[in-house]
């Protein structure tokens, strides 16, 4: 049952992510991307990572994609007409093949040991996923977490300065 559901969600995710790049209409591409994010959130739920799933939808589907759709609407982008240029197609295929080789090489070289981490579904049910993430963010990964927040602050200030020439 679970495997069946997983295959269904995974299939939708793959189909919609292919639709993102094949659609000629920018809004339909954006919609497909939202669908992909939604499927990813479903997969997170299946991994009992409820907090991640909610954040995935709030941040990606609810905030970033709304901005993208907003920009597409504001610029009133029409469907792209002309055919694809050859060098773009070539570069895309090259990158794809390279990534595939890289993934395959890594999978082939490293052996899957099958060791499991400390976090399993029993622990998640007992402590709660949000609590687990919060705890590890503020103890084990405190420095990277704080650095990320400083980075975001810098980005915010940068955006303000770029958009407001006269301060």
């Amino acid at each position: 049952m679970e495997t069946l559901f997983f295959s269904l969600v995974a299939a939708i995710a793959i189909i919609s992510s292919i639709l993102v790049i094949t659609n000629k209409n920018p809004i339909n591409s954006a919609l497909s991307l939202i669908m992909t994010f939604f499927c990813l959130a479903t997969l997170y739920v299946m991994l009992e990572a409820h907090f991640m799933a909610a954040i995935q939808i709030i941040v990606y589907a609810g905030a970033i994609m709304v901005l993208i759709v907003f920009v597409i609407m504001l610029l009133n982008l029409k469907s792209e007409s002309g055919g694809r240029t050859n060098h773009a197609l070539f570069l895309g295929v090259m990158t794809g093949v390279l990534l595939l080789i890289q993934t395959w090489y890594l999978l082939w070289r490293s052996s899957l040991t099958g060791t499991k981490g400390v976090v399993d579904s029993a622990l998640i049910a007992k402590v709660g996923h949000t609590e687990l993430i919060g705890k590890s963010l503020y103890t084990e990964f405190l420095l990277p977490f704080e650095i990320t927040s400083v980075l975001l602050l810098v980005a915010i200030i940068g955006a303000v300065i770029l958009s407001k020439k006269k301060l």
Partner: peptide, 13 residues
């Protein structure tokens, strides 16, 4: 166990 976040997510959709 993330009920409130669920509501926020649906509101943002």
């Amino acid at each position: 166990n993330i009920g409130v976040l669920y509501i926020l997510a649906m509101a943002s959709l």
